[in-house]
Design a protein around this nucleic acid. Structure first.
Length: 566
DNA sequence: GCCGTTTTCGGCCCGACTGTTTTCAGTCG
């Protein structure tokens, strides 16, 4: 069990129940500690077993009381106070407040007046027009509830960053071409490059806001207009994603961008820093009394409160405002891609085509890493075919001015062995190994399986190390700390897979790997030359994990790169 | 319920919008 996650869920929920009775500061304390636990890079179970209650209290936001509740949960898998709260108001609160516009106060009233316990009850009552009759509610609220439920049914409510990218780029391009738009930037979780995003926030500066808004709500892919004003308009696109457009004053563009980029937690901390310095920070600027002292650019805003500008990917209140922040890796640092599939294993393009595209991208090297024989469904290559491929690559290397490396994406079999003989593996420039079968193993076995593969002297890189597929498949059951240790001991590189469906390693694991001194590589897993462009997703993921150029080996020139391979 | 080079008590981020009211509570970001 992931105790951090389970406890975070319980404390979030407790915060919501407590908020019903206006115990807001207490509620906020629970909410805060839930957020801390969710992001914590240590296991509370380990913290407790090493230092007991005292150590738990060293965790931010954990005091005597909450430490006791953590202890209780570790021992009994229960938190009695939570059960008591649920018993008092026996409703599916989390489910109800997931609906846009519904909060705990409304949920409480609906339970007390109409005995509404879950979304099903809520939908029924709304359809019978029982809700509009209640004091404090009305026709509009009832309609919004039904629409909110319909939306939740249609989607999980969040979109993958990769899915949202095309739509966002399209809208930005359209707005950019509008002569009334002076300045323009995307904000929100999209700008922070979170793996999933809730909606898209766009800020513009314009002297003619009405014209911009008219254009915005009239775009050809608008399915629904939520609202249109002179400072803010909201639409839903045909793809089902909500987009907010805000017009802000030029002198406040930087502070608005800072504010709407978030994250919420980052903003809370930056605002507190402002207060400590006798200043006030909001979306309009930084103020000393009534006097505005910054706001035009983000750099000015951060400087005014005594901070250096912070890359958006790092704005998650993970220490970025208190620690000295490193210079994180950039897309321009990348010198090559070593996770590419050619038409040898059923990919779309010949090696020569891939090489040409890599040259266009300005790469110094490109690695071909086709699947190997165990993966029949992907046309995996056997030893004989790999050796033929070697000859082909040698030929092409004489023709092309880019270095083509000969690798493979081999399979880690359930016992940890590789599906290609060591004799062939050791001839290759590099070897990627990944788990592609028997995904449901127990944690101990899966961890042992991967570590066994890492100990193979021919294995250089572990592909998509935790195996997750976003919104579809959880990570394998694996002890990631053990994987890190083994990676360090055996000089094995962990991949950051750039596929927007994977983004594996995730940000927090990248941060851990970096702290352990484990090297990483960013690969696209491209099956088509267009997918070589996915590199930017892997890079932003690496940035969210604070990775520097030196942590990512495919930022290194060829000679240095080869030294990392065993 | 947590936290503390001003505090072990008295604070806890802040503004806008929505839908409901007729001055505001609830929700959101």
């Amino acid at each position: 069990m992931n105790y951090n996650k389970e406890l975070a869920k319980i404390f979030f929920s407790m915060a919501n129940y407590l908020e019903m009775d206006e115990a807001s500061f207490r509620s906020n304390a629970y909410r805060k500690v839930a957020g801390v636990l969710e992001m914590l890079d240590k296991d509370v179970k380990d913290v407790y077993s090493k230092g007991g209650l005292k150590s738990l209290e060293e965790i931010e936001g954990v005091g005597k009381n909450i430490a006791l509740k953590i202890e209780e949960f570790l021992k009994t898998k229960k938190v009695k106070d939570f059960d008591r709260l649920k018993k008092k108001v026996p409703i599916k609160l989390d489910e109800i407040i997931a609906i846009e516009g519904m909060g705990v106060k409304k949920a409480k009233v609906l339970y007390e007046k109409l005995k509404i316990k879950n979304v099903k009850d809520l939908e029924k009552a709304a359809k019978k027009h029982k809700i509009a009759l209640l004091e404090g509610f009305g026709e509009k609220t009832e309609k919004n509830i039904l629409e909110g439920i319909a939306f939740l049914k249609r989607s999980s409510g969040r979109f993958l960053l990769g899915e949202a990218t095309f739509i966002t780029k399209d809208i930005l391009r359209k707005l950019e071409n509008l002569k009334e738009v002076e300045k323009l930037n995307v904000a929100g979780s999209f700008r922070r490059r979170k793996e999933t995003i809730g909606d898209i926030d766009i800020l513009v500066v314009s002297k003619k806001p009405e014209k911009v808004m008219d254009f915005f709500v009239g775009m050809d892919n608008v399915a629904k207009v939520w609202g249109k004003g002179s400072t803010k308009s909201s639409i839903r696109t045909e793809e089902g994603i909500d987009v907010d457009l805000r017009v802000v004053p030029a002198k406040s563009f930087g502070s608005a961008l800072q504010y709407f980029t978030g994250s919420k937690e980052h903003n809370i901390v930056t605002r507190r820093i402002a207060i400590d310095k006798g200043l006030k920070l909001n979306e309009y600027g930084v103020f000393k009394g009534k006097k505005m002292i910054a706001g035009k650019t983000e750099e000015d805003v951060y400087k005014a409160i005594g901070l250096n500008w912070i890359p958006p990917e790092m704005r998650e209140n993970q220490g970025e405002v208190v620690k000295k922040i490193p210079k994180i890796v950039e897309l321009g640092d990348i010198k090559g891609d070593l996770h590419c599939h050619s038409d040898w294993d059923g990919g779309d393009n010949a090696i020569s085509v891939i090489a040409r595209r890599a040259i266009e991208k300005g790469y110094e090297y490109i690695g071909i890493s086709d699947h190997t024989q165990f993966l029949k469904i992907e046309n995996g290559l056997n030893e004989k075919e790999l050796l033929e491929q070697k000859k082909e690559i040698e030929k092409l290397n004489k023709k092309f001015k880019i270095k083509i490396l000969w690798g493979c994406e081999s399979n880690i079999l359930p016992d940890g062995s590789i599906d290609i003989s060591d004799d062939v593996l050791k001839q290759m420039d590099y070897v990627i190994a990944g788990v592609h079968s028997s995904l449901k193993m127990k944690e101990k076995e899966m961890t042992k399986r991967i570590i066994t593969a890492m100990k193979n002297p021919n294995v250089d890189i572990i592909a998509h190390p935790t195996g997750r597929i976003l919104q579809k498949r959880d990570e394998y059951n694996v002890d990631f700390d053990e994987i890190l240790k083994a990676a360090k001991e055996n000089n094995v590189i962990l991949e950051i897979n750039s596929s927007p469906y994977r983004l594996d390693l995730k940000d927090s694991n990248i941060k851990k790997a970096k702290e352990m001194g484990v090297k990483m590589i960013i690969g696209t897993d491209a099956h088509h030359i267009q997918q070589l462009d996915l590199m930017k997703f892997g890079v932003s993921q690496a940035r969210r994990g604070w990775a520097e150029k030196k942590d990512i080996i495919n930022t290194q020139p060829l000679v240095k790169l080869l030294k990392y391979f065993k």
